[in-house]
Design a protein around this nucleic acid. Structure first.
Length: 198
DNA sequence: CGGTGGATCTTCT
DNA sequence: GAAGATCCACCGA
């Protein structure tokens, strides 16, 4: 296990209530960028968000593009809740719902707390591989469909806003439609992203 | 290190 | 019936 040589951003206030609603009731592209550097924990396990992607209703790659279904119902609900879905029959993916059937996919975290829980759930000892991908991240944090639709300002979630950090944008990963928009965002220079940015 | 193929199953056509 | 917002093992360089 490699040591974490990044300073912890302790002391960022939890984002709750009207402030949380205001933050997420915006375009997913803006929210996805603003989330970089913030802190997410679920039942005490989590860290700094270093990679996100935005998905919008006018976006052919988005689950909400063809309207509401049983699966994507949470995307059409209030902003500031989570949308969770099964990916490739195997993994869970975690999204934060934003304005008007848009959402932000949480793709990578820099682990900070609950490291032992993450290692146990992931079954790997390599620190860098704990949360550097959307499926790995949900496995490390114990996320499954039972959390779908829950609000982000109540247990087991905690969101903390951090000081702004430099952000880089790139093309989204793993999609085949609407591939051109630069709606993937990452913390500049982070070693904890799922893939390097060009 | 980069590319490739299999796993696995829900969702929508 | 096919595709999919992924991960991992394995191959070759």
């Amino acid at each position: 296990m490699t040591p974490n040589d990044q300073p912890l951003s302790i002391g960022s206030p939890p984002l709750t209530g009207p402030a949380l609603a205001a933050f997420f009731s915006r375009d997913a592209v803006v929210v996805a960028s603003d989330l970089i550097g913030s802190r997410l924990t679920i039942a005490g396990a989590g860290g700094r968000i270093v990679e996100t992607e935005a998905y919008r209703p006018d976006d052919e790659a988005s689950h909400s593009f063809r309207g509401p279904t049983a699966r994507n119902a949470a995307m059409f609900g209030p902003a500031g809740r989570v949308y969770i879905y099964r990916s490739y029959g195997i993994h869970w993916c975690l999204n934060f719902v934003c304005k008007a059937a848009s959402a932000v996919l949480i793709r990578a975290l820099e682990p900070e707390s609950g490291i032992e829980d993450m290692i146990r759930r992931r079954g790997v000892a390599n620190f860098i591989d704990l949360c550097n991908g959307p499926g790995k991240l949900t496995q490390a944090l114990g996320v499954d469909i039972s959390l779908n639709g829950l609000a982000l300002d109540a247990a087991p979630f905690e969101i903390g806003m951090a000081e702004p950090v430099p952000v880089v944008a790139g093309k989204r990963i793993g999609i085949t439609k609407n591939v051109e928009p630069l709606w993937r965002f990452g913390a500049v220079g982070s070693r904890f992203v799922s893939r390097r940015f060009p």
